[in-house]
Simulated scan of single mutants.
Amino acid sequence: MRAVTWQGPEEMAVVDVPDPVIEEPTDAIIKVTTTGLCGSDLHLYGPLSPFMTPGDVVGHEAMGIVEAVGPEVQGLMPGDRVVVPFNISCGSCWMCSRGLQSQCETTQNREHGTGASLFGYSSLYGQVPGGQAEYLRVPFAGYGAIKVPAGHPDDRYVFLSDVVPTAWQAVEYAGLETPGETLLVLGAGPIGDMAARIALHRGLRVIVVDLVAERLARVAARGAETIDLQEVDDVAEEVRSRTGGRGADAVIDAVGMEAHGAPLTRLLHKATARLPSALAQPLMKKAGVDRLTALYTAFEAVRRGGTVSLSGVYGGSMDPIPMMQLFDKQVQLRMGQANVRRWSDDALALLEQDEDVLGVEQFATHHLPLDEAPRAYADFRDKADGMVKVVFNP
Rank of each mutant, 00 (worst) to 15 (best):
A278Y: 03
R81F: 10
I65Y: 10
T34I: 09
E225D: 15
I29Q: 02
N339F: 09
M95C: 13
P320N: 03
V390F: 13
G245Q: 13
K286M: 05
R98M: 15
D56V: 00
V289W: 06
A271R: 13
A116Y: 06
A3H: 10
L350P: 05
A278R: 13
G91T: 01
S241F: 04
S89N: 12
E61Y: 10
G46Q: 05
L275A: 02
V32F: 03
L186R: 01
M77G: 14
V164F: 11
Q169F: 09
N393H: 15
S241W: 02
T243C: 09
L48Y: 04
L348S: 12
S317N: 00
E214Y: 13
A373E: 10
P85F: 00
D19W: 10
E372D: 15
L184P: 06
L368P: 03
G70Q: 04
G75Y: 04
V83P: 07
N339M: 10
V360P: 00
V212P: 01
A174E: 01
Q132H: 12
Y125I: 08
D19G: 12
I198D: 03
L44D: 03
V4H: 08
A68T: 11
H367W: 08
T178N: 13
D371L: 13
V57F: 07
D253H: 04
D290F: 00
V208M: 06
A298I: 01
I29D: 03
K270Q: 14
G39R: 05
P165I: 05
I227Y: 07
S89I: 00
G120E: 08
F140Y: 15
A278K: 11
T34L: 14
L292S: 00
M12C: 06
C93E: 01
E355W: 11
I321M: 03
Y296W: 10
L333S: 00
V128I: 15
M284Q: 01
